[in-house]
């Protein structure tokens, strides 16, 4: 269902919705918003943009290869999970097919951007050296690992953003991937019975959530400023992870 369909659905539920408006033009304004929202995904010549920029800066290549490694991990994980006969069904299959589509697209995008500089796909061990022996036989284990990967991905991209300031086109693409990882993370958390947002530094494995319980942002203690709880304040921000922290999280999954 796209946003224009949603608007039509609103009209079905509330036939008078437009009659409540002061001006007929409001309808056009609202439809315009929906239309633009739908069309907001702009086509970009990714490969050429990235190729042009990365050649100027080895730090950019390093960041993109770091990102590519994480995307390889996620893509293969979901490809195996969704490909295993009878393992995922119904809502789980719908969800993880959509996520797998995006992770495979991220791999293809980053590989095309990096060209000959792209790292090769590592071999993975999704049991994490035996820590998760049921990762592809127990849905709960699969969900737990998926949540860890997605929340790590969100925090990992965030940690690299500052290094991409010299390459604004690549920074924008990285942010566009980052926000999609967050869409995934929230849905996987929901399937896992959790809130869509991270409370304090709660979650498993602990390293994925370490340091997410920050209440001071921009030098301001937001619990003190707003009178809202620590839980609510920490939910409102996702903290970055350093590259070293991310590698420590994912290294058990490298075969």
């Amino acid at each position: 269902m796209n946003l224009q369909n949603i608007l039509n659905e609103i009209e079905k539920v509330d036939a008078e919705v437009y009659e409540r408006l002061d001006h007929v033009s409001r309808r056009h304004v609202f439809q315009n918003l929906m239309k633009k929202a739908v069309l907001g995904v702009a086509p970009v010549a990714f490969g050429s943009i990235l190729n042009k920029a990365y050649a100027q800066n080895s730090a950019v290549v390093e960041v993109l290869n770091f990102a590519l490694t994480l995307e390889y991990l996620e893509a293969e994980f979901y490809n195996i999970g969704t490909g295993r006969a009878g393992f995922l069904t119904g809502e789980a299959m719908t969800t993880f097919m959509q996520i797998a589509k995006h992770e495979n697209a991220h791999v293809a995008l980053l590989k095309s951007a990096l060209g000959g500089a792209a790292v090769a796909k590592p071999n993975f061990d999704f049991t994490a050296k035996g820590a998760f022996p049921t990762v592809f036989t127990s849905y709960q284990t699969f969900l737990a690992v998926a949540q860890a990967f997605e929340d790590t991905g969100v925090r990992a991209y965030k940690g690299q953003a500052g290094r991409l300031i010299p390459a604004p086109d690549i920074l924008t693409v990285a942010l566009q991937i980052h926000s999609v990882e967050a869409l995934h993370a929230a849905k996987v958390r929901y399937l896992n019975g959790n809130k869509g947002w991270i409370v304090n530094s709660n979650g498993f494995p602990a390293a994925v959530y370490a340091g997410d319980d920050v209440v001071v942002q921009g030098g301001v203690n937001l619990v003190g400023l707003t009178g809202l709880s620590m839980e609510r304040v920490t939910e409102a921000f996702d903290e970055p992870l350093t590259k070293e922290q991310v590698l420590a999280i994912v290294s058990p999954f490298l075969a």
């Binding site: 969100v154 991209y157 965030k158 953003a161 942010l175 980052h178 926000s179 999609v180 990882e181 967050a182 869409l183 995934h184 993370a185 929230a186 849905k187 929901y190 869509g196 947002w197 942002q217 939910e235 409102a236 921000f237 996702d238 903290e239 970055p240």
Partner: peptide, 12 residues
């Protein structure tokens, strides 16, 4: 970046 991912979580 800390904020945008939470907005994306809301969207989801």
């Amino acid at each position: 970046g800390k904020i945008v991912s939470v907005e994306a979580r809301h969207t989801s």
